[in-house]
């Protein structure tokens, strides 16, 4: 192949915080793709795949899940210190996830409804992204993340280059695919214009509005879209719920939630 000595393997670790494991599953799903690059990557810590673990430090830590307990806060600081690069994978790690809905409610209320003995549960009042606690080198969006984008991240770092992940919205993917816009052609509320690309416009391609599961794109004008949805006849509750799912805690969507609440109360 070439005569220079093989570069050292990229030592990769995968970590989990408050999450459903779906993003780690995307990594397991990359098995076939990752086998041929076993020479360039060493999976040093990935409990979902293997109980064999190697101690740190690590070249690349992929972090799934949000920070919801006092122990999480300690552990993420420790991991950051052990990792040259720290990349969050998915909505939970990058924005707090669906569990960040508790940020809009009283956590004691949830505890009482869900757990028989809430006093055994030690939890923070909020679900926060990793970036609220430590420096993050790259946030990979999606609920769950896209396998292709994950591979791009790993390969980019293994090859010492910047990852190339789009910063435009879902509409660009939707139009490149030749899909008819559901918002314009049938008035279906769609978060595509404010949502980061990555899914290949999966929902619009099935004639459904985008649910925003890749989170707001950089600079998203969620307020502009919200106003348009109101003009199209969507009521404040429906609109608030639209923005309050996987990325409810991302600032652009969180503002819509707050506005929706205010509108509901005043109407």
């Amino acid at each position: 192949m070439n005569d220079s000595p093989a570069p050292p393997k990229l030592k990769v670790a995968v970590w989990k915080f408050a999450s459903c494991d779906g993003c780690q599953l995307s990594l397991l799903d990359c098995e076939d793709e990752l086998l041929p690059v076993a020479e360039t990557i060493e999976i040093a810590h990935f409990l979902e795949a293997s109980r064999a673990v190697a101690p740190g430090p690590y070249d690349l830590s992929l972090v799934e899940g949000s920070i919801t307990t006092p122990q999480d806060v300690e552990r993420i600081r420790e991991l950051r210190a052990q990792s040259k690069l720290l990349v969050t994978i998915g909505a939970c790690a990058s924005a707090g996830g669906i569990q960040a809905l508790k940020n809009f409610a009283r956590v004691e209320d949830y505890l009482r409804v869900v757990y028989a003995t809430p006093e055994y549960v030690e939890t923070l009042a909020t679900s926060e992204p990793i970036s609220a606690h430590v420096r993050v080198d790259f946030e990979l969006q999606g609920c769950p993340i896209d396998k292709g984008q994950l591979l791009e991240i790993v390969l980019a770092y293994a090859n010492g280059r910047e990852p190339r992940v789009p910063r435009h919205c879902v509409c660009v993917e939707c139009k490149r695919a030749g899909q008819v816009c559901v918002m314009v052609a049938s008035g279906t509320p769609c978060l595509g214009p404010v949502t980061q690309a990555g899914c290949g416009a999966l929902c619009p391609r099935w004639s459904r509005g985008c649910y925003g599961c890749f989170g707001p794109m950089p600079g998203a004008n969620a307020e502009g879209l919200d106003e348009r949805l109101a003009m199209l006849g969507s009521d404040p509750r429906e609109r608030r719920r639209l923005f309050s799912t996987f990325y409810a805690n991302a600032p652009a969507f969180r503002d819509r939630h707050a506005q929706g609440r205010a509108d509901e109360e005043s109407s």
Partner: peptide, 23 residues
């Protein structure tokens, strides 16, 4: 700019827009 979503739909449907990226 308050209304515009910067979503690019206008340029995608425009028959003359030609901007492209090379990857």
């Amino acid at each position: 700019a308050e209304r515009c979503l910067s979503c690019a739909n206008c340029t995608m449907v425009c028959p003359t827009c030609f901007c492209h990226t090379v990857e």
